[in-house]
């Protein structure tokens, strides 16, 4: 495999506008209770998470129907025709990425907008992010010493090896307006 597509999330840039979440819903027409992408807020800042298209997808390992597959560009997909709605993948995923749809009685998840990508477009969430807090990168060829593999609010990444990297929140500095003297 020459590619492993993944997300690059800059926690400093995210303002919690949920544009990514709304764009995801618009693009994929998911039901009201199904959130493929979720923006959450903690005391340290905002976090936008979806399926991380892990290198070692636990959802895939536990699925009794073998409904998951991984494309050669690293995107993990679920075949809804094979899914029986047993929800084992939901319990196995530490990021709560697979979502149970009570209307279809099946599990669905982020597919990194692969139909858009196949047309040369960016995933809807990345496209909608006005502050460029969310970006798409090929992790096989991405290297930035400032990027880290985990930040606040991310569950243990050791087993699953998620395809996401982060720029952590940098220390905030206060700037005061200083009145200039007329002299």
């Amino acid at each position: 495999m020459s590619k492993q597509l993944g997300f690059l999330f800059n926690a400093d840039h995210c303002i919690g506008c949920t544009a990514c979440e709304i764009a995801c819903r618009n693009e994929n027409h998911t039901n009201r209770n199904v959130r493929w992408r979720k923006v959450s807020k903690s005391s340290e800042g905002f976090l936008s998470l979806s399926c991380n298209h892990c290198n070692s997808p636990e959802c895939s390992r536990v699925c009794p129907e073998n409904a998951f597959m991984k494309r050669h560009d690293g995107i993990v997909l679920i075949d809804s025709n094979l899914c029986t709605g047993c929800r084992l993948c939901i319990t196995a995923c530490p990021y709560e990425a697979p979502q149970f749809d009570y209307e279809t009685n099946k599990v669905s998840k982020c597919q990194m907008c692969y139909p858009r990508q196949d047309q040369g477009l960016l995933p809807a969430c990345v496209d909608a992010c006005s502050t460029e807090a969310l970006q798409l990168v090929d992790l096989e060829n991405f290297y930035d010493p400032q990027a880290v593999s985990s930040i606040f609010g991310i569950p243990d990444i050791r087993i699953t090896q998620p395809s996401i990297v982060f720029y952590p929140i940098s220390e905030k500095k206060r700037h005061f307006l200083v009145e200039r003297s007329s002299n």
Binding site: S60, N66, I159
Partner: peptide, 16 residues
């Protein structure tokens, strides 16, 4: 053989 992927994922879990 179509279940060999489980063995691969299990090996990675065992490794960690």
């Amino acid at each position: 053989p179509s279940e060999l992927f489980r063995s691969y994922q299990e090996a990675k879990v065992a490794f960690e």
